[in-house]
């Protein structure tokens, strides 16, 4: 299965990416009750998986809104999902309460930053975030390195000064070490994708990724997409497609979009490629909402970059 036979996004490929993204957003809209947070437990007992899923829904919806390349129906669905997620977080109150209850945690601030970027603000959480991110404690969080970059990105989105040595943080990531490319596995692959997402703010600042890492990804992203396309690992593959759109000279992999479009179900759900989805879409939500969220983001960013980057400056798939 080749992924490198075409390397530019022609009208057909753009339409395909738009179709995948639109359908994914439609599925997320129809399945949004799956993202509802548990309400019969104290705040601190709300499961991390539920918070994460809802945050990812907000991220996708926020990016559809930010890029403004979706059609009216898709844009309306995304806006509805963003409002829904904000309401689920009690318009920021829940995130504030979680952050105040566990000041050393970073996930409430990280989630809040996705809303802050879209103009949804919570004044008290803004103050708490500014206070916490200014502490010496915020510079010694023992996260895995790419998660440290997530906190830096969140601080930037909220508008809080960053005191971290970002170059030093980058150097500690797997990608920052520019390792032998065959040492990639599914675990550090997600580290690579998130390092790129955080440094470029999901493609809005491609220049945030150092040149040497842009060059490294131009060399090896084509190989990784080829291998994960062959294994039909759609979730990770879609994240790689996003990485391609985040580069200064984006890589689009139109042949991979054809495979992704074939894999997407008629109702818009994208399977994860690892487990067989149950026929009942509500049961399928559990293991397949993540790749569908990623598909919504990937489709949005592919269309947006393809429309704004002159073809001559786009990189090929090799």
């Amino acid at each position: 299965m080749g992924t490198g036979t075409r390397d530019t996004m022609d009208a057909v490929a753009i339409r395909l990416a738009q179709q995948v993204g639109d359908r994914a957003v439609a599925w997320l809209g129809s399945m949004r009750t799956g993202f509802t947070l548990a309400r019969d437990v104290p705040d601190e007992r709300i499961g991390g998986d539920g918070l994460k899923s809802l945050a990812e829904l907000a991220l996708a919806a926020g990016l559809v809104r930010r890029e403004a390349v979706a059609g009216p129906r898709c844009a309306q669905t995304a806006q509805g999902l963003l409002d829904f997620a904000w309401r689920e977080f009690d318009e920021g109150d829940l995130l504030y309460r979680l952050q105040a209850h566990t000041p050393a945690a970073t996930h409430p601030i990280e989630i809040y930053s996705l809303f802050a970027a879209a103009g949804y603000r919570h004044e008290r959480l803004d103050r708490l975030a500014g206070h916490l991110l200014g502490l010496r404690a915020s510079r010694v969080i023992e996260h895995v390195p790419n998660r440290r970059l997530a906190v830096v990105a969140a601080a930037t989105r909220i508008g809080v000064p960053v005191h971290d040595d970002v170059d030093a943080l980058i150097a500690q990531t797997w990608l920052g070490g520019t390792p032998e490319p065959w040492m990639l596995d599914a675990n550090n692959a997600y580290g690579v994708t998130h390092t790129v997402f955080h440094l470029t703010d999901w493609g809005s600042r491609p220049e945030g990724l150092p040149d040497r890492l842009q060059d490294y990804l131009h060399l090896w992203l084509p190989v990784w997409t080829e291998v994960f396309c062959e294994t039909r690992f759609w979730d990770l593959l879609l994240e790689f497609l996003i990485v391609g759109t985040c580069l200064q000279r984006p890589l689009f992999f139109p042949s991979v979009w054809e495979r992704v479009a074939e894999a997407q179900h008629a109702d818009g759900m994208v399977p994860n490629g690892l487990t067989v989805p149950p026929a009942d879409s509500r049961a399928a939500w559990l293991n397949h909402h993540h790749p569908t969220v990623v598909a919504a983001v990937a489709g949005t960013l592919a269309v947006s970059r393809a429309l704004t980057v002159p073809a001559a400056s786009a990189g090929g798939a090799g």
């Binding site: 065959w182 190989v223 090799g318």
Partner: peptide, 14 residues
């Protein structure tokens, strides 16, 4: 050269 090296990396990953 790059194409050859990509082939090598692909084979190692597989």
């Amino acid at each position: 050269r790059l194409d050859l090296t990509r082939g090598l990396v692909r084979a190692l990953l597989r």
